[in-house]
Nucleic acid binder design. Structure first.
Length: 536
RNA sequence: CGCAGCGUAGCUUAAUGGUAAAGCGCUUGGCUCAUAACCAAGUGAAUACGGGUUCAACUCCCGUCGCUGCAACCA
């Protein structure tokens, strides 16, 4: 196959490999949606994209969760991993790799990586003792424990006393090199506020951290010392590397790194910032590997202004949300209404209001009314209009010709709110333009040429908006493209992943005249507000 | 206790030290192509509070209150 674009720009992005201690929650869905949008945006430009997601499946917590259900750990992992994959399917996530840390090939990668770090003398055996919370998978200070030896996070779990040999990673050796990395590559940690957090933390001095556990079966053994099991984090982060292997590759680091390394963006929640911005680069330095381009730690979601949690019983079930509103609605809300990087709130009334206002009224109705007029006034035939007939100051063209650059910039800086804002600027201008031009009056006055110009300008603007919004709401945009007579399907990467296509479709004025369009239908039905009773 | 960040219209957010903006919501009017949609006008902010620096402060400094994060291994 001759794909001139596939060797051009390479782009790799990851979500966290989600821990399989429970079914996927809305926060994981949020991260994965954003990663998918970024991946789709790059594919749209014809870049060669590798989007990685997956599951982290080792550790005592998993082992015990399985025991409680009376099933084998692997069986438990399989079930949860399936539920993640099913949710991604429902959300219309197009990932390229689903990396599971229990994969055999992952074991090979971990082994090889471990021995690199080992040979670099960055791993040593020492003692770790203290109170250990299995749910946290971590040691606790005596003073932070609640009365009765309960974990402060898992308030119903007793901590256990551990006195054990652990292998440690010499993180302390990397402070200077990490600080150098942060200053030389200021965009490595984003957003800025998180970067400062990390800078502060590292400035305070780094301690070695343990990378093994004893008395733990569910995990990979430490090479040369099978009594120890590799600690989940050390193993999990490497799942990103394993994911880079082509299916037919031998599982070696060399093979994994040949194509998509270094990864461009690790997208994570702010809770796991330190692992990705401190431990991870240090581990990679030790193994002599180049470093990822960027770690972005986004915010958390609240529900009606309150922290979500099982104890509060106010979690959002992603499946229920999707069943009720559909993938594009959920994707749009998260990208448009939540300032990326900051904490964001989910409020169902606002959710419904925003979607109805933007997708049903402004955008959907715009297409519908325009196609309705095209049918009435032009027999559903796209007018033959020359782009050059429109002056540079034309209210729609003047926005349209500049839109792509602005939107691309917003996407590149991960400013998704900005993306939507730019695009809806043109959408609102279209509605205003129709009102001012009043094609129905022009038609009655037999000014057919003017009618055609107006409708062409509007339809072409709608097309451009759909094209640029397609990473966020691919189904709706695909529907719009179909109604405008294109074969393009934004869910089919082999159709859209082309540089030339982007060069053409990101312009204003490419809609070809002469096509007869099918009967229009609404792209997005208005949503119902949640019933009053459920909102006392 | 300590360190850091945040606090702008009913809501979500903007604003190189230079007239505080936008969208949603709400009110009124207009239009009739359209998904009771769209367009216009209006409504609405002592920028948390109190001081200070400055010709000028949402922006810089100090303090108070409130929220959040970090405080070593929380996917």
């Amino acid at each position: 196959m001759n794909q001139p674009n596939s060797d051009n720009v390479k782009f790799a992005i990851t979500t966290p490999l989600y821990y399989v201690n429970a079914a996927p929650h809305i926060g994981s869905a949020y991260t994965t949606i954003v990663a998918d949008v970024i991946a789709r945006f790059h594919r749209l430009q014809g870049h060669s994209v590798l989007m990685i997601t997956g599951t982290d499946e080792h550790g005592q917590k998993i082992q015990r969760a399985a025991e409680e259900q009376g099933i084998a750990p692997q069986e438990h992992c399989d079930a949860i991993a399936d539920s993640f994959a099913a949710l991604w399917h429902k959300l219309n996530i197009h990932y390229d790799r689903f990396s599971r840390t229990t994969a055999t090939r992952h074991h090979a990668i971990v082994k090889e990586f471990f021995s690199r770090v080992w040979n670099n003398k960055d791993i040593y055996l020492s003692k770790q003792q203290g109170w250990y919370c299995v749910s946290c998978e971590e040691f606790k200070e005596e003073r932070e424990l609640l009365e009765g030896g309960l974990c402060p996070i898992h308030t119903n779990k007793k901590v256990e006393w551990r006195d054990e040999d652990n292998y440690f990673f010499r993180l302390s050796q990397y402070q200077e090199r990490l600080e150098k990395l942060y200053s030389e590559q200021p965009e490595f940690i984003q957003p800025e506020s998180r970067r400062n957090e990390v800078l502060n933390f590292v400035k305070g001095g780094l301690q070695d951290f343990s990378i093994s556990r004893v008395n733990l079966e569910w995990g990979f053994p430490i090479p040369h010392d099978p009594n120890h099991t590799i600690y989940v984090w050390f193993d999990a982060l490497l799942g990103y590397v394993t994911a880079l292997l082509e299916p037919e590759d031998e599982p070696t680091l060399e093979n994994a790194l040949k194509n998509y390394w270094p990864i461009n963006i690790h997208l994570i929640g702010k809770d796991i910032l330190r692992f990705h911005t401190v431990y991870w680069p240090a581990m990679l330095m030790s193994a002599g590997m180049t470093l990822p381009g960027k770690v972005f730690g986004h915010g958390f979601l609240t529900k009606d202004g309150k922290k979500m949690g099982k104890t509060l019983g106010n979690t959002i079930d992603p499946i229920a949300l999707l069943d009720r509103y559909g993938a594009d609605a959920v994707r749009y809300y998260f990208l448009k209404e939540i300032e990326f990087g900051q904490d964001g709130d989910f409020n169902e009334t606002r959710f419904v209001n925003v979607l109805n206002a933007d997708l049903a009224n402004d955008f959907g109705n715009l297409l519908n009314r325009s196609l309705g007029m095209l049918k009435k006034y032009c027999q559903s035939q796209v007018p033959e209009v020359k782009v050059t007939d429109f002056s540079e100051t034309h209210p729609l063209k003047s926005i349209g010709v500049k839109l792509s650059d602005r939107v691309v910039n917003a996407y590149k800086s991960l400013n998704f709110t900005g993306v939507c804002e730019e695009i809806f600027n043109l959408i609102r201008a279209c509605n205003k333009y129709i009102d001012e031009q009043a094609p129905w009056s022009l038609y009655k006055q037999k000014q057919q040429e003017e009618v055609e110009q107006v409708l062409y300008a509007v339809l072409e603007s709608v097309r451009l908006c759909a094209y640029l919004l397609s990473p966020i709401i691919p189904n709706l945009c695909g529907d719009i493209y179909q109604q405008l007579g294109f074969e393009l399907d934004f869910n089919n990467p082999t159709l859209i992943n082309k540089t030339e296509l982007f060069a053409e479709h990101s312009q204003w004025g490419i809609l070809a005249g002469g096509k007869t369009l099918n009967k229009p239908h609404p792209i997005f039905n208005k949503l119902e507000l949640p019933s009053q009773e459920s909102n006392p």
